[in-house]
Amino acid sequence: MVARRKVCMLGSFAVGKTSLVERFTQGIFSGQYLTTVGVKIDTRDIDVDGRPTKLVVWDLHGDDVFQKVRPAYVRGAAGCLFVVDGTRTSTLDVLPELRERVLAHAGPIPHAVVLNKVDLADELIVTPDAIRTQLPRVDVHPTSAKTGEGVETAFVALVRRMEQDK
């Protein structure tokens, strides 16, 4: 039987959560920024180390003054990815508090930070080290939803962590 695993995408607005999900589930990328209201749920069947898994990806709206992530959204999640926009330090600054809030409700589930938009090399100001300074011992995956770089790796690594955590 194929295991179902809920994965939540979290982070500030316009960091590329929806683009990462679209890249991962459909292999597409749209450069247009269209804010997410509420939750978008998508699925993808994935085989990691010979174990088939149906990932149910919850793409949550950006967390800011306009919309706060509801605790109920992360309930039952087996893992989550916190997304940072490599061109905006503010998206890293809010992460420790958001992470604390999410893990308080979801429990100590496997999670990692995705450093997105690494294709914008000239504009990158957030480094993996800067993330590790704020969130020690958290895996950091540089990604580009635009080119697809690192996206599969980030999800697969999370699934592996989730399998170990079962």
């Binding site: 316009a14 920024y33 269209l34 804010t35 209201v37 950006g62 905006r88």
Partner: peptide, 20 residues
């Protein structure tokens, strides 16, 4: 209503991005 709300939030966030 979602589209309407999305447009409002989108505008606010676009402004926030411009401000940033």
């Amino acid at each position: 209503t979602l589209i309407e709300k999305q447009q409002i939030v989108q505008r606010a966030r676009d402004l926030a991005l411009e401000q940033e």
